[in-house]
Amino acid sequence: MRVYFNDENQTIVNNAFAVKSRSAELANVYVDVEPVQFNRGFYSVDMTFCFDVSVEVFDRPCGRTGRKPCIVSGIAVFNKRVILFGSEGNVKVFTSDHENVNNESCHYNDLPKAVVEAVDPVFLAARLVDADTPAEGAQIPEMFSEKLEGSFGCVVPLKLVLVTLGLFSIVKLERNVQMLIPAYDFCIPDKECVTSSSDPCDLFKNIKFPIDEFFPPRFNEHGTGSQGCGCGDSDREH
């Protein structure tokens, strides 16, 4: 992914000799859900991941003595699409807290809700490359420019920073359904909790010795179990 910088940081990158990865953080995820045509019940989930990326910029070979590397921050963007089953729904939902200009209390609930769970990415690599078409690469996406301070578009990017990030995520579709759950009346405890005053040594003696913690698990002949080795006593190793 390309990292977008403001004009001040892009000037530093243009004069860079090399870059080194420092940190990456998942800033936001923009999600859009659309039904898949000719495949009822399935929906496409388009996700745009926005990362805050920091790299160390060297203006000379890293092994030479001199100034310390300059740390610059920018934005990296990655798009991903998945298709999931989300069932169908064609009902009107009436709520008392729904706000709109007409003071109506209903809205349609045709689409399921997409939920994306992700952790901060693993910074795998960063490299510096020359911009093939500097004039075309001067603009940062407008929806992300507000996340960076400073001016944009005045410095032509002569060099680009490309990063590789590893991201673990879970994407799911959620829809409200009707479920019948038995309900019970609350109960008041009628017994008093008595604190045990027994000897702690006696309590420890009643705990089963954790044998499994001291010995590695054994696999049976199918390689999936830990009880028994699938052989007779005569073949057992001691």
Rank of each mutant, 00 (worst) to 15 (best):
V57S: 14
V156S: 13
R2E: 15
K113W: 10
V93I: 13
F204L: 07
E149V: 07
L162P: 03
H238P: 00
S44I: 03
D132L: 14
F219Y: 13
N6D: 14
N176W: 00
V13S: 08
A125Q: 14
P210D: 08
G66V: 02
V101N: 07
I75Q: 10
C231F: 06
G63H: 11
F214A: 12
S54E: 15
M143K: 13
N103W: 01
V161Q: 00
A18W: 10
P210S: 09
K172T: 12
K147E: 03
S87D: 15
K68M: 09
S54N: 07
V156Q: 15
K159W: 00
I71P: 01
S73L: 06
A131P: 00
I83R: 13
E34Y: 11
T133Y: 06
K172F: 01
E56A: 14
T11C: 06
Q227K: 11
N79I: 00
E142Y: 12
V55R: 09
D185S: 12
P134W: 10
V55E: 10
E8N: 09
D97P: 00
N79T: 12
V19I: 06
E8R: 14
P121E: 07
K191M: 01
T48L: 10
F38E: 14
P112A: 05
V93R: 11
D59N: 13
T164V: 10
F38V: 08
V31Y: 00
F214H: 09
R175E: 05
D190N: 04
Y43V: 04
P210C: 07
